[in-house]
Design a protein around this nucleic acid. Structure first.
Length: 233
DNA sequence: GCGACAG
DNA sequence: ATCTTGTCGC
């Protein structure tokens, strides 16, 4: 498994105003429409990030799974300094440098990338998943554990039930029940996909847990990478 | 003006 | 995200 060091890109935004301006400019580059292989086909990659703000440390992981078997095909991690503080609506500026480094360190193409957080379901319609997709050209979707600033009606109890995630009357994503009677996850389009495909992909990744197997694997790996980095120093 | 707010 | 023990259940 490969581990690399994260470098914050030159020109990376420093202020909130600057970051919002970047979102407003890049937003137009999002491409809609399903583009990749059908759910359960090819490979799918989970990415996640863990932090130790006290030590100014960030660790990201990218885990590639066989979409049919959900077996791990490849993994990579990246460790470095924190690029941006957490500000609701600006999560991408905190997570993307580390996530990109981990993706770049993979020995194979990632296929569809599943992000922790939102894509088009965002105050300016340009969340983490969309931002990562535009910068890399990869197909991405966002899967969040909380509804953020949006509203929704509770979906039916059976796994597979869904209801619109709403910004006023606009459907920006979907509340999707991935396990019978368990709190839904919140799915939105990132880049080069559509909402129906994104939800179908998520259901294929959740045969037995609320969260996609991709995010579960990536979460575990980035936490281990962070602990390793702390222990080594 | 005040609070809420992905991770 | 992170701080944090045990506990109930498949």
């Amino acid at each position: 498994m490969t581990t690399v060091t994260v470098r914050t890109p030159a020109g990376w935004p420093t202020t909130e105003d600057e970051a919002r301006a970047v979102q407003d400019e890049l937003r137009a580059r999002v491409r809609a429409g399903a583009s990749g292989p059908p759910p359960g086909t090819g490979v799918v990659t989970g990415v996640d990030v863990a932090y130790d703000d006290e030590r100014d440390l960030v660790a990201a992981a990218a885990v590639v799974l066989d979409a049919a078997t959900l077996d791990v095909v490849a993994e990579a991690t990246a460790v470095g300094g924190v690029a941006f503080p957490y500000v609701p609506g600006l999560l991408a500026f905190r997570e993307i440098p580390a996530v990109r480094a981990a993706l770049d360190a993979l020995p194979c193409p990632p296929g569809l990338v599943v992000c922790d957080g939102y894509g088009l379901a965002h105050p300016r319609r340009f969340g983490l998943a969309s931002h990562l997709g535009v910068l890399t050209g990869l197909a991405t979707i966002g899967v969040a554990k909380n509804p953020f600033v949006f509203t929704y009606d509770d979906p039916g109890a059976p796994r597979g039930s869904a209801s619109p995630l709403l910004a006023g009357t606009e459907e920006v994503g979907r509340a999707l029940r991935t396990q019978d009677g368990v709190k839904p996850v919140f799915v939105s389009v990132g880049h080069r996909t559509d909402l129906d495909d994104a939800c179908a992909q998520v259901l294929a990744l959740t045969p037995r847990h609320r969260l996609p197997e991709t995010t579960r694997r990536a979460d575990g790996l980035c936490r281990r990478a962070l602990q390793d980095a702390i222990t080594r120093h």
